[in-house]
Design a protein around this nucleic acid. Structure first.
Lengths: 362, 362
DNA sequence: TGCCGACCTGGTACCGGTACCACAACCATG
DNA sequence: CATGGTTGTGGTACCGGTACCAGGTCGGCA
C-alpha cells in the first residue's frame, strides 16, 4: 500500500505537540526572543518527533528576504559561464544563499524575461552577464532596482549603465597577446571571432563601429588587437578579421579563406575556445602546422591546450574569481552598502607555451 | 537625488486604482473566474499604470506550487554537468519552471544538506546526480518524497533505490570501446580513472568489490572493461588499472608508471576528460605518440578531440539529452503519474577517429 | 409573474511563517 | 511595600496572493 503522505508539519503542529503557544514554538525554532530552557527542550523534542522543517517560502513571504540570488548567463553549458556560476554559487552558499540560474542564449528579450522572473520570485540580488549593448537596452535592470533588487554585471560591462561590473581587461589582454605576436616578428595577424555581420566592413572605422555595437567583450578584444597594430605601425587589413556567425565551423571556413590569401596571416589571435579549435581545423585543412607555419594565441585556457603538439600559448581568465568577486560586490549591496558603480577589473594570466614562433616564409 | 523606492505594488493597490474589489482584481490578473470586459480593461490599465507584477512567493505560498525545480550535481563548472543542467533547465523553462542549482563537490553530507534546502524551499521536484553509493545512504530522498517532492536520478543510478534514473549504459559503452581496442590487436590495455584508493588491490575480485563500492559510473565502466577482457580471454592485470585520486596530475603519474612496466600497455582506455589529458601528458613525458605507440579511447567528446594529432576516438555522452529526459520524467511525476521506477537508458555515440591503431612492438 | 441559472462582484478565510504587543510572574531595589 | 526591570508566554496582525462563498443583477422560460 502507498504510504499516506500527510502535509508537511507546521509550527502550529509543533506547538500543539509541545503543549505551548504558537509564537513560543516559533521563537524557539526561529531562535529569537525569550524561551525558558525546559520549554525550549520540549519544543525541540516535538519538532524532532514530527519531523518539522521550516517552510522557507512562508518565511520569505513574511521577512521579504528569499535567501536566493539570481544569475543570468548566455549558456550554462559553456564552460566559461560554468566556472563563473560555480564561483558565484560557492560564495552565495557560504552566506546561506542559493542560486537560481537562467540561460538566455545571448538574446536580449530572453534576458528581459529572465530578469522579470527573478523579480517576481523576489530574489535578493541579480548577477548578470548581459547581452545588452548600451544603457538604453537595459531598462530591465532599472526595473529590478525599482523593486529594491541590486544588480551586478559580470564578464561584460554595459557602456553608460550605472552598475557595478566585475570584468577582466579584455582590451589590455588582447593587446598584450597581439604585441607578443608582433614581437615574435609577425606583421600579418588574423583575428578570429570578429563582428557577427554578413558583409565584411572594409574600412577600419566601420570595423570599429560595428564592433562597438556588438558584444562588449568582443569589441574590447578587437580594440586591443587594433591598439597593438597601431603601436607597431602595422596597417590594418580587413581581410584578416573574421566576420559572420560565431561558431566553430565558421571560424574554420573564414580562417581557411584567410590562409588562401596571397599574403596570408602568419599568426592567429583567437578570442574564444571554439574560435581556436575552428582555426586549428583550418590549419590542418591547409596542411599547416602550429608555430612552425602559423603562430597562435587564444583566450580561455583548458587542459587540452597543454596536450596539443605544440602546447598552446593561452590567456587564462579567472572564471571562478569573476563569480566570487561579483557575488561579494552583490552582497555588499544587499547589506545596504552604497553601490560604488565601478569597474572591478580582475587579472588575466598569460600562459606562455609553444604555439608562438617567428614567422616562416612559406 | 535618489528616487524614492516604494514597496512593489500589490493586488490591493491595483484594485484601489481600478476602483474594484480586491478579489475582482485578483481574478482579472490571475485569469480565473468571471470578470466583465470593461472591468477587466480597467484593472489591466491600473496594473499597467502602477507597474504591478505578481509576487511569485505569495502565489506559491497559497497554491503550494513553487514553479521551481532543484538540481543537485557534483560541480556545475564541470562541462558534463553543465550540459546536463542546460538540458534540464531548457526543458523546465519550456514548462514555466525555473531551476535552482546546487553543487556538492561529490560529498554526500553536502548532498543531504542540498536536498534539505530544496525541501525547505518547497521545490516541485528534484533531479540529482547522486554521490550516494547505496539505498542505505539515500534516506534524504525518502525525506523529499515524504514532503511530496518527486526525485529523479540522472547520470548515476543508485543500486537498490526505488527511483527513476536517466543514465547511459556505461558498462556496455566501456565494453564496446575496449573490445574495439582488442579487435585492433591490443592485449595490454590500461584503464585510467580506477578506484580512488591508496593501495592497489591485487586481486581482480578485490578490484571489482572496491569499484562497486565507489561511484556508480566508474564501477560500471570498470566492469565493462573487465567484461571485454573476459570475452576475449585476456588475463586481468591489476597494474594496468589506475588507482588513487581522480585528478589529471595523478592520471599522469599513474600512466607514467604503467608505461614503465616491463610489459607496458599498448592501449589506454580513459573514463573522463581529465583522465584523457593526464594520460596524454604521460605519453608525451615518455616520448610516445598516440596511435603509433599507444592507442587511446576516451569518454566525453569535445571540440579539442578533433584537433589533436591524431584526432581522438571518443565516446560521446548525450549530456543535454540526459538532462531533458530527466526533466521529462520528473514532470511526469509532478503531473501525478505513477513513477515507473525504471532505468531510462540513453544511447552513447562511438566516434571513430584516428587514435586507435594496431599495437607497435616497441 | 415567479423561478432558475448564468454572469459578475466583493468579503473573507487561509497558506505558514515573523514580529509586535499585552500581560503575568518574579526578583531586586529604594 | 510600591516600583520597575527582566524573563517568559500567548494572542494577533500582517506579508500578498488564492479560493471559496454569499449576494446581486439580469434574462429566459414555464
Amino acid at each position: 500500500m502507498a504510504a499516506e503522505r500527510s502535509a508537511p508539519p507546521t509550527i502550529s503542529e509543533v506547538a500543539a505537540g509541545a503543549g505551548v503557544g504558537r509564537s513560543t514554538a516559533a521563537r524557539t525554532l526561529g531562535g529569537y526572543g525569550y524561551v525558558s530552557p525546559d520549554v525550549r527542550e520540549r519544543v525541540l523534542a516535538a519538532a524532532e518527533r514530527i519531523g518539522y522543517r521550516a517552510n522557507a517560502l512562508a518565511r520569505s513571504m513574511s521577512t521579504g528576504i528569499s535567501n536566493t540570488i539570481g544569475v543570468i548567463v548566455a549558456d550554462i553549458a559553456n564552460p566559461f559561464f560554468g566556472g563563473v556560476v560555480r564561483g558565484i554559487s560557492d560564495a552565495a552558499h557560504a552566506r546561506g544563499y542559493d542560486t537560481l540560474v537562467l540561460s538566455t542564449n545571448e538574446k536580449l528579450p530572453e534576458e528581459v524575461a529572465a530578469t522579470n522572473v527573478l523579480i517576481d520570485k523576489r530574489v535578493d540580488g541579480i548577477i548578470v552577464a548581459s547581452a545588452a549593448l548600451d544603457a538604453a537596452s537595459a531598462a530591465h535592470f532599472e526595473q529590478a532596482r525599482d523593486h529594491g533588487i541590486p544588480v551586478v554585471l559580470v564578464d561584460r560591462a554595459v557602456p553608460g549603465l550605472e552598475l557595478d561590473a566585475v570584468v577582466i581587461d579584455n582590451r589590455a589582454a588582447a593587446r598584450d597577446a597581439v604585441e607578443r605576436l608582433i614581437a615574435a616578428g609577425h606583421r600579418r595577424i588574423g583575428f578570429v571571432w570578429g563582428p557577427p555581420v554578413q558583409e565584411r566592413p572594409r574600412l577600419r572605422r566601420e570595423m570599429v563601429d560595428i564592433a562597438a555595437r556588438n558584444l562588449w567583450t568582443d569589441g574590447e578584444r578587437l580594440q586591443g588587437y587594433l591598439d597593438a597594430l597601431d603601436d607597431e605601425g602595422i596597417v590594418f587589413d580587413a581581410d584578416l578579421v573574421m566576420v559572420g556567425e560565431k561558431v566553430e565551423e565558421n571560424a574554420r571556413v573564414e580562417v581557411r579563406q584567410m590562409l588562401a590569401l596571397t599574403d596570408p596571416p602568419t599568426a592567429l589571435f583567437c578570442t574564444e575556445t571554439d574560435a581556436m579549435t575552428g582555426s586549428l581545423q583550418a590549419l590542418r585543412d591547409a596542411g599547416l602546422r602550429v608555430a612552425t607555419d602559423v603562430s597562435m594565441i587564444g583566450f580561455d585556457d583548458s587542459s587540452w591546450a597543454r596536450v596539443l603538439e605544440p602546447p598552446l600559448t593561452m590567456i587564462e581568465q579567472p572564471m571562478q574569481a569573476l563569480g566570487t568577486r561579483a557575488a561579494e560586490v552583490l552582497f555588499g549591496a544587499i547589506d545596504g552598502q552604497e553601490p560604488s558603480v565601478e569597474l572591478h577589473t580582475l587579472e588575466t594570466r598569460f600562459i606562455e607555451r609553444a604555439s608562438v614562433a617567428p614567422p616562416s616564409d612559406r
